[in-house]
Amino acid sequence: ADWNEAAFKAKEMPEALSALVGSESAERDGRIHIKAPDIAENGAVVPVTVEAEIDGVTSIAIFAEKNQTPLIAAFELGPNAMPFASTRIKMAETADVTAVVKAGDQVFRNSRTVKVTIGGCGG
């Protein structure tokens, strides 16, 4: 897969979402579980785990909505991959961490607010 420059360089969430999955919005779905701290003391390292109880998941994307470029990571899943991805992200400030899950042509999302006490994007 080629690196999706339009999605990664987008400065607003709807623009990033549209470039990534072809739609600006997605249905909120409680079957997407986001594990992240309620309060992150260090915005440079915020552990985020996304797990979806949805069949046929083909991709998982992680966004930090208030970062200068919200799209952090997009995971394309092969047929054997479980709907699970875990990594550590940088967050500029307190914001919603949003997971967008694609299953075939259906797109779902869920969010979780992470309070950041020290921003992680330097400056």
């Binding site: 999706n4 440079a44 990571a73 997009a74 940088k90 992680g120």
Partner: peptide, 12 residues
């Protein structure tokens, strides 16, 4: 199994 695409927003 999986291909991850990242921005610079992933931690060091």
């Amino acid at each position: 199994v999986m291909t991850a695409s990242w921005s610079g927003g992933v931690s060091k």
